[in-house]
Design a protein around this nucleic acid. Structure first.
Length: 724
DNA sequence: GTCGTCTGGCTTTAGACAGCATGTC
DNA sequence: CTAAAGCCAGACGAC
């Protein structure tokens, strides 16, 4: 039966024939549990190969796992897999960090489980025996091993699977890189390498009004604007196609989008009706009003920008708008290249230099990154071809860029496990979950990393020794007679998934606070943890931050190390979070701290995770129980963005911080007082409409009343200015 | 003296995973 | 280490 899996999937998906890499993968034995490394361009059908592997193993009664670097990718694949695999009577589940689910239930109830890397790592930590039931593991975007931050997770995650079970089928999917054979060797996989693309790609360099394609052909572009990228957008739009323009800074993305929007109306082709719809949807999102209006206006002109300063909702809307033909172009930072599938006929790489923080100078992007951008060119089934065009900046010659990028081979993938941070994390997880119980087994386990394959035993052993010594010194692991065992604290830290280095940092700061933990003090501790992501501090800004601190958090003045930029950034982040839980409107926060709504959302998300994790860690680290309670409360407040008195009210679906405050101020201070409120009374409160009232009534089980309210029609969303 | 413009120096610069609880988009 | 654009202060010039 297993040999038929691919055929059955073809039928389900309506495929008539397979793409070359798919055929190659079948021939190589995906259906029979062979481990594979599939290296082929974007959109060459790797998802189908993943499906075949997952389904084949699951149909034999084993658990199949699919793991990816981003929640958005995981969600996209979840929908796709569920759609197809349910028809084979397989159950598909997803477990990622922002969904409220129990991993064990998800794993037990489903045949195919979709996760992010970290989530799968965490699942394995909590129950390593899952590996024994694992039939197939698909690791998507495995080239992420080369990522400074996330790479070590993939390596050590995979090392645990490879170490514990020789039978698991690992199907690794990768973009094209030069050392694929080495990667295949690492995971013990057969290499399926293929450069075939579903849509032919032509690559070129644009300079002084002419596109020089790599095949020698040229195309003259009318210079309607002073900006080369915009000329390329207009040129493509005239031919009826869409363009993605990749830039290397947010500001640049915004600026170019605005420039394009000022173009004479007839130069860009896009669906104006749809554009209006999406502009209205953007206006209805959360976040600063000015920013929403700015994007809405841009969309009305058929363009938008796209970067991580936007909220996820806004980003998704912009992507949808592009897919729907409402936009002629998107000007994006590299987020868009890494995320969900969003192809365009033309891709413009507006600049190949990017400022590099670690060196303090601009550097050229990698060939690999260029190929990732270029991979977005050409929509399968829609475009006869795709184009990737690099814009030559003034000092660059066409030939230089052609040699350095278009004709160049992508770089090797290098292990990033050289730092102690990743190894510490992995070692603690291995010891706490019982996968390793002495230095020997720990070393054995880490021999299954790419780092070992590339750097050898000596270096690995050194890093491991240092990491272990740290863990012992911090009281997370005990080493007696060569046997390793996690302490209670070690178990807790491992389970929370915090960086083990959080512990010494927490202990040190706790001492500084001398037993007095105020709300701002705790937020500062949260912001100082190694896992926190901090708001950027401009050099001209530190004085302003100091003034605000004197005013608002005088207790922190002596705690902050003013010479340490990270400490100042933690303070800035603390102030923003404090505003958030004091119910300052989010657009006000974004403005005060000069960041986008996406940045605010990001610190909130991280802070609430760290807060609740620290609540677990604190007692184990010897801090009073009351600190834990405060942290738990704080985590809730950060999640909802409210003062303590609103925590009850925000439990109601449809009631967030704003509506809760309105209800509270109208006298409904508790759930009890709301439970018996009359609908008419509630409707009189400004900002509380029929939909909200219905939701409140439903929450209290007053179904009939809720239904009668719902019947009264909908409110407009206040988007009249865009209504034709 | 006041206003407007030019210029040179200084500043800034991408992204985003993880816990817990509960029968799940 | 190989950039480029915004911003601001100060210089300069016209009146």
């Amino acid at each position: 039966m297993s040999a038929k899996v691919a055929e059955r999937l073809m039928q389900i998906l309506g495929y008539k024939e397979l793409y070359p890499p798919q055929r190659a993968a079948i021939e190589a034995g995906v259906e029979d549990g062979r481990s594979l490394l599939v290296s082929s361009p974007t959109a060459s059908g790797k998802t189908f190969i993943a499906m075949v592997a997952l389904a084949s193993a699951a149909l034999k009664g084993a658990k199949s796992f699919y793991t990816a670097p981003l929640r958005s990718i995981a969600t996209e694949k979840y929908r796709e897999f569920r759609e197809a695999l349910t028809k084979l009577n397989l159950k598909v589940g997803i477990s990622i960090g922002d969904l409220n689910v129990n991993d064990e239930i998800i794993v037990n109830r489903n045949d195919v489980i979709i996760t992010t890397y970290e989530k799968l790592d965490s699942i394995i930590r909590n129950s390593p025996s899952i590996i024994d039931k694992m039939g197939s593991l698909v690791v998507d975007e495995i080239h992420y091993v080369d990522d400074e931050k996330r790479g070590p997770i993939i390596e050590t995650l995979l090392s645990k699977v490879l170490y514990r079970s020789r039978g698991v089928q690992v199907v690794a999917l990768s973009a094209t890189v030069s050392n694929v054979d080495e990667i295949a060797n690492w995971i013990g996989a057969k290499l399926v390498k293929c450069n075939w693309r579903p849509v032919p790609l032509s690559e070129g360099v644009y300079k002084d009004g002419v596109i020089h394609f790599s095949d020698g052909s040229k195309r003259k572009v009318e210079e309607v604007s002073a900006n080369p990228s915009i000329n390329l957008v207009v040129d493509e739009s005239r031919q009826g196609g869409q363009t993605l323009v990749f830039v290397q800074s947010r500001r640049r993305a915004v600026q170019l989008a605005k420039m394009a929007a000022r173009l004479p109306r007839n130069l860009l082709k896009f669906n104006q009706g749809k554009a209006r719809e999406y502009a209205a949807k953007i206006l209805a999102t959360e976040g600063p009003r000015l920013l929403r209006e700015e994007i809405a206006e841009l969309i009305m002109s058929g363009v938008s920008y796209h970067h991580a300063g936007l909220s996820n909702e806004q980003r998704t809307l912009i992507e949808d708008a592009f897919r729907d033909g409402a936009l002629a172009a998107i000007f994006a930072t590299p987020t868009l290249a890494a995320g969900v599938n969003l192809p365009a006929r033309r891709v413009v790489i507006a600049e190949v230099e990017r400022y590099d923080e670690s060196y303090g100078v601009p550097r050229d992007i990698k060939v690999f990154e260029y190929k990732q951008f270029a991979g977005r060119a050409g929509r399968p089934g829609l475009d006869p071809y795709g184009e990737a065009i690099i814009v030559a900046s003034r000092p660059r010659s066409v030939r230089e860029l052609m040699e350095e990028y278009i004709k160049a081979k992508p770089e090797r993938l290098e292990s990033r496990l050289y730092g102690v941070r990743g190894v510490r994390h992995s070692a603690l997880g291995a010891v706490a979950s019982g996968i390793a119980n002495d230095f020997g087994s720990l070393l054995e386990l880490h021999r299954k990393t790419l780092y070992y394959v590339q750097r050898g035993e000596e270096k690995l052993s050194q890093i491991l020794r240092i990491s272990l010594d740290d863990l012992v010194a911090w009281g997370l692991v005990e080493e007696t007679n060569g046997k390793l065992k996690a302490t209670h604290l070690g178990y807790v830290v491992s389970r929370t998934y915090l960086d083990p280095a959080s512990v010494p940092k927490l202990v040190k700061l706790a001492k500084r606070f001398n037993g007095k933990f105020t709300t701002e003090g705790l937020i500062y501790i949260i912001s100082s943890m190694p896992d926190m992501n901090l708001l950027p501090v401009r050099s001209s800004e530190s004085e302003k931050i100091m003034d605000m601190a004197v005013d608002r958090v005088p207790t922190l003045i002596d705690i902050v190390d003013w010479d340490d930029p990270d400490s100042v950034a933690a303070l800035k982040t603390t102030l923003a979070l404090l505003d958030w839980i004091e119910e300052v409107p989010d657009d006000k926060i974004a403005e005060t701290y000069d960041v986008g709504p996406g940045d605010v959302a990001s610190i909130i998300d991280t802070a609430k995770w760290i807060a609740s994790s620290l609540a677990e860690v604190a007692p184990a680290a010897g801090l009073p129980e009351e600190v834990s309670e405060k942290l738990r409360l704080l985590s809730k407040r950060i999640e909802e963005g409210v003062k303590p008195e609103l925590l009850q009210l925000v439990e109601i679906p449809g009631v967030g911080r704003v509506r809760a405050r309105r209800l509270y101020n109208a006298g409904f201070k508790t759930l009890e007082s709301l439970a018996t409120a009359s609908p008419q009374e509630l409707l009189r409160i400004p900002g509380i409409g029929p939909a909200t009232v219905a939701s409140i009534l439903e929450f209290f089980g007053r179904k009939e009343e809720a239904a009668s309210i719902k019947g009264r029609g909908h409110e407009g969303v206040g988007l009249d200015r865009f209504a034709a």
